[in-house]
Design a protein around this nucleic acid. Sequence first.
RNA 1: GGCGGAGUAGCUCAGUGGUUAGAGCACGCGGCUCAUACCCGCGGAGUCGUCGGUUCGAGUCCGACCUCCGCUACCA
Length: 663
Amino acid sequence: MEEKVFYITTPIYYVNDVPHIGNAYTTMVADIVARFQRLLGREVLFATGTDEHAIKVAEAAEAEGIDPKTFVDRIAPKFKEVWKELEISYDDFIRTPEPRHVRVVQEAFRRLRDSGDIYRGVYEGWYCVPDETFFRESEVTDGLCPNPECRRPVQWVQEETYYFRLSAYQDRLLQWIESNPGCLQPEFRKNEVVSFIKHGLQDISVSRANRGWGIPVPDEPDKVIYVWFDALLNYITVAGWLSDEEKFHRTWPADLQLMGKDIFVRFHSTFWPAMLMGLGIQPPRVLFGHGFWSVEGEKISKSRGNAISPAKLAEDLASRSGAKREVAVDAIRYFMVREVPFGVDADFSRSALVHRFNSDLANDLGNLLNRTLSMVGSYFDGVVPKPAGVAEEIKSEVLSAVAECETALSSLEFARGLEAIWRAVSAGNRFVDERAPWRLMKEGKREEAATVLYSVLETARIVAITLSPVMPSAAREIWRQIGSPGDFESVGWAAALEWGVLPSGIMTAGPQPIFPRIEERKREPKAEAGAESPVGAGFAIPPQQAPEETKPEAEEPVISYDEFKKLDIRVAEIKSAEQVAGTDKLLQLTVDPGDGERTIVAGIAQWYEPEKLLGKKIVLLANLQPAKIRGVESRGMLLAADVDGRAIILTPDEDVPSGAKVR
RNA sequence: GGCGGAGUAGCUCAGUGGUUAGAGCACGCGGCUCAUACCCGCGGAGUCGUCGGUUCGAGUCCGACCUCCGCUACCA
C-alpha cells in the first residue's frame, strides 16, 4: 500500500491583490512545513494558486477596458514570480479558470443540487457588489454596505438564486469538531467556530446573476457559481478529485490547510467541511487560522500604503546588510516565524527585523561559523580536522536540540523549533569559548583543538539541515562553506540525528560572512533599538506619524521609562559660539558631545555672550530631530532652566568628559 | 449583551497545587581575543491585574471586580 501523500494548501489568492507581507506569510509557513515534511522523507503535495472569478476582478478588467481573462492572465504570473523570489517550493499552482477546476466545481454543484443540498430559492434584500455579499434588511441602515472596510452603496436586489443547505449541517459539523481534536487550530479559534455554529447556521446563497465572468451554473447559463463555492473546491481539484482517483485516494484528506483568521470561521471551518460532507468526502485533517500582521503597530491597509511587498523588503534588507538577496529572503522567513508563536497576531517592525538579523543571524549563527572556519583556516590549512574523540557534552546538547526541534516543527511550533536550533548554536559558541582552541594551539595541544573545531563544524552541519526548511539558501551556504560533500537537497532529517558524519580531510570553503551585520548608526547603538528613525533609514516601510501627539492631554502627561530611554542626553563641550546673523536671540554653537562636533542653535543670546561660553560643558539632547532654524541646521537642543522666560544653562557639578550620558 | 482568551522582570513571553517564580532580549559588571566591536560568565527590590475564598500550601483551583483583546449578537 502506498504511503499517504502529505497534502498542504494555502488559500488561493485574489488576483487583484499583489502579495503583501500578510498573505506571503501564509505561503511562507506552508513552504516551511512542506520542506520539513520532505526532509522527513514524506512525499508532499504543496498547493497554492489564484482565485480569479471574483466580480471585483471583472470590474478591474473592465476599468482597464480589457476582458477579464486577459486581465487575469496578465496578473496571475506575477504571483508565481513573487513566490519564486520567496523560495516557495509549491508543487501545484491552480488557477480557478482552468478546465480541471471548472469541471470539478460544476460537477460538485450538480451533485449537491441532485441530492437536495442545493435548492432553488428567491433572494430579496441588500447586496453589495464589491463584497459579493448579501445583507439582511436590518443590517443596512443608510444604504451603505455594513462592512466597515467597504461602506459603498448597496443595491436592493430580488432574484432567483440557489441556496446551499448549510443549516442542515450544524450537528454534523459540531460532531466532527468534537470527535477530531486538533482539526481546528489554534484551540482558541476552534472555540470561536463552535460558538458561531451553535448560534445557528443559515443557508448560504451559492449563485449569482451571470455578469459575464465566473463558472456558470450547470444548465443555467444566466447564473454563475458563488466565488467561495468555486474557490474552496480548488483543494480537491488539486488533489485529483474526478480526474485522478488514485491520486485523490493517496492525497485526500489534506493534512494541513493554512489560512488567515479572516477566512477561518465562516468559510474554511464551516462552509467548506459542510460542502465536503454533502459530497461524501472527508473533511481535511487540520485547518489552521493564523493571526494577522500589523506593520509598525498599524493595521495593514492599502489606503495607508503600508502593504509592504516582501520581495521589496528582502531587496532592501539585502542592500542594507550586504547579504545575498536569497539570504535576505531567508532572514525575513526566519523573522516571521521566530518572532511570535504561530497563530497569534504580530507586529512587523523594521527595528525588530534588524534586531533579529543582527543578534540571532549575524552574531550568533553567522559568527559561529565564521570564527570556526577562520580557525580551521589558520590552524589546519582549511581542512576539516580529524577529531581525537567524540566531545560528548556538545554532541548531546546538539542532538537533544534536534529532537526538540523536530517535535516543535511537527506541531507547527516554529518559534520553539528555532529556539531549539539556537540552543545548539549557543552550545557551539560556548564550547569554542570554554575550550579556547587558540590557547590549545599555543600549548601545542593540536589534537584537542582538532576535536573542538571538528565538533563545531559538525554542529554547523546539523544546524544547516534542521534550519533548511526555514532558511533554505542560508542553510545551503553553511553546508557549502563547511565543505560538506554531497547534494544538500537530497540530505534528509535523519542525517541531523547522527554525530560524526562530516568527513575529516576535506577542504572547507573558508569564511565568507553569510549575514553581514547591519550597521544602523555608528555612534548611538543604544538609542537605536526603540527609536523610530524619522528620516529615510531604508526599508520600504513608510514613515509613521506620531498619533499620540495629536491627542489633547488635559492632565500632566506621564511618560514611561521606555520613552525616557529614547532620549539621548549627553554632556557636550562648547567649541565655538556666534550670533546667528539677523537674529537677536539665537546663538549658533559648535558643540562636541563626545562623538565629533556638531552645530546646534540655541535661543540664549539675550543672556549669554558667545565668548564666555567657549569651553563650557552643557547638557545636550542629542537625538532631537534635526531642524533648520534661520537657515542653520540644528542637530540637538541645549537644555536650560527656564526662569520666567530667562534661560539658565545647566552644567555638570564636576568636570566630566564630553559625551557623558545623562540619565 | 453573550461566549472565549489574556493580565507574571524594562520588553516579548514560559510556568503538571509543593523548596529561594524562570527563558530570551534589553541593561550593568567581569572575562576572552579565534571571530561579523563578536562570543562567554555573572547580576536583578517581579505587590505573578485587584479583592475575597478553598487548602497544610495558590502565579497555578473557585468567586467577584478592573483592564485589554477576539468571536458573536445587537432582539424586550
